[in-house]
């Protein structure tokens, strides 16, 4: 191994280790470096709060959950709910942004449906709720839906999804 090659490799090693340690020490994210903060916050309450996307079926008017990968691709449900949460929490004037986001989800849902990439029904609107469940601390399977709060919606009357 030549001297120059060894120095190059040492430089790469130092950069990789140094970058990783920097993000760990500063708790900052510089993708692909990261402090890997997944699940690092402690949960104290037996409550589950989630942003949830629903579609309103055009023919029946029923609500259906859209958080299925086939409906929201290329998003997965985790990424989409997190993105919507960031839009909701990060902006002062969030309502127009949320409407645009829901509109985008609806347009893509319909495009995927027409392309045959899923078999969901046509929709007449999309709604975003903040859902809250009270979990059974005993660990048994029964659950209670405590409440839900409508955060944003787009419908045929407010905007067209086609």
């Amino acid at each position: 191994m030549s001297r120059h090659r060894r120095w190059l490799v040492c430089g790469v090693i130092a950069a990789v280790i140094g970058g990783s340690l920097y993000d760990i020490m500063t708790d900052c994210e510089h993708w692909p470096f990261s402090p890997y903060p997944m699940y690092s916050d402690v949960r104290r309450e037996y409550v589950l709060k989630r942003f949830w996307l629903f579609g309103i079926e055009k023919e029946t008017g029923r609500e259906m959950s859209l958080l299925d990968a086939q409906y929201v691709q290329p998003f997965d449900r985790s990424r989409l709910t997190h993105a919507l949460m960031r839009i909701y929490r990060g902006q002062v004037d969030r309502q127009p942004l949320l409407s645009r986001a829901l509109q985008d989800c609806w347009v893509r849902y319909e495009a995927l449906r027409r392309a045959g990439r899923h078999h969901g029904p046509p929709l007449s609107g999309v709604q975003l709720y903040l859902m809250t469940w009270q979990l059974a601390s005993s660990g048994h399977q029964a659950e209670q839906q405590a409440s839900r709060e409508l955060l944003a919606e787009v419908t045929d009357s407010t905007d067209s999804g086609e």
Binding site: R44, R77, A136
Partner: peptide, 16 residues
């Protein structure tokens, strides 16, 4: 704390 227990229940009740 009950952190891990709550985490497990959250993921199995409503997988996200």
């Amino acid at each position: 704390s009950d952190n891990l227990a709550i985490m497990l229940l959250q993921h199995v009740y409503q997988p996200v």
